[in-house]
């Protein structure tokens, strides 16, 4: 208690030191100030790749950039508030994720009206330019990527009946719904194209944690051993490798397809439990919006759409891809 009351000056000095340190940490003024806004919090591994791309672009172009993570993962209102604050500040350019179609329409329009270029990255309004005033989108066509994932992995489906498990990592979130929606659309076409086969599928809430997702997949497949393949909306399905081995599944016995490049996905590809992943190249999703906004500001050029997510990665690619993962660029 002495420290609380008798030491008021000490506490004051501590706070003063803290704020002084913050001020020192603020970089010197650059020609342009750009911000990138996401709906996830700092712990999202995938977003660290986007941050790496953003940082590299900003260092190269000598502009001041800030990646604004959410305090609370997935809190869209918090992301919207951050966006409105940045527009009020008169920032030079904004890149953001739009995972909900209507919520950001007005704020983005306000930014555009104020002369602030806005480029969506990673996830776009599901209606694209029709649904939002943003100038361009740099990222993966999520629905198409899901469709392509299903189509590519189906080439390895064994003869006979096919039962597929779809892991909807985050029910209600547009990125997950779109990717799994794409896989589902392919499965419907696959069913029509194979009238002599019994083709069925189930969708579960697979979760956003490797351990939880792994356990749910294993619980499902041991209860439904007829399962041929598993598709995950993210990378968390790789967490199933461990318990599949425990259950006595041999490599390649259950086909697994998912998204993104993280260590656990590469490890399970080496082990033979993940067979296909689609890299949406997060580095480009961080790098290109900054480059585009810089060119718009500096030379009056216009923004352009980039589909970053066409890269299939197979187990045979793992060795090559690993060196880029270690550099933090894939």
């Amino acid at each position: 208690m002495k420290y609380l009351y008798g030491g008021k000056m000490k506490i004051f000095k501590l706070f003063a030191l803290f704020f002084a340190a913050l001020l020192i940490a603020v970089p010197a003024s650059a020609k342009y100030k750009f911000s990138v806004l996401t709906q996830v919090d700092t712990s999202n591994t995938f977003w660290q790749g986007i941050k790496r791309g953003m940082d590299d672009a900003c260092n190269t172009l000598q502009v001041d950039c800030q990646l604004v993570f959410n305090q609370e993962n997935g809190n869209l209102q918090m992301q919207l508030t951050n966006l409105e604050a940045l527009v009020e500040q008169g920032i030079d350019g904004i890149s953001l994720v739009i995972v909900e179609d209507n919520m950001f329409d007005e704020a983005v329009q306000n930014a555009i009206d104020a002369g602030i270029p806005v480029i969506t990255t990673n996830v776009d309004d599901s209606e694209g330019a029709e649904g939002n005033a943003r100038l361009a989108f740099v990222g993966q066509d999520l629905f198409q990527a899901g469709y392509e994932l299903g189509k590519e992995l189906s080439k390895s489906f064994p003869d006979g009946d096919t039962h597929v498990l779809l892991g909807l990592s985050a029910p209600g979130q547009s990125w997950a719904e779109a990717r799994i929606g794409g896989v589902r659309k392919f499965m419907e076409e696959y069913k029509t194209a194979n009238p002599n086969k019994k083709v069925t599928w189930d969708t579960i809430d697979s979760g956003l944690d490797t351990s939880v997702t792994g356990q749910r997949i294993c619980a499902y497949v041991q209860g439904h051993p007829e399962t041929t393949a598993y598709f995950d909306a993210g990378f968390w399905g790789a967490g199933a490798g461990n318990c599949l081995r425990d259950l006595g599944y041999k490599p390649n016995e259950l086909l697994m397809g998912m998204f993104d490049l993280v260590d656990i996905v590469m490890d399970e590809m080496d082990e033979g439990y993940v067979h296909l992943t689609i890299d949406q190249q997060p580095y480009l999703q961080g790098y290109l919006p900054i480059l585009q906004m810089y060119l718009m500001k500096e030379f009056g050029l216009s923004a352009w759409d980039v589909n970053t997510g066409k890269a299939f990665v197979y187990p045979s690619d793992v060795a090559d891809v690993r060196k880029y993962i270690e550099m933090g660029v894939r």
Partner: peptide, 16 residues
């Protein structure tokens, strides 16, 4: 224990 079991460490471990 979990990181040893799943042989990976990610920053989102234990979220929620």
């Amino acid at each position: 224990i979990q990181s040893f079991r799943i042989k990976t460490v990610i920053t989102s471990l234990g979220q929620g």
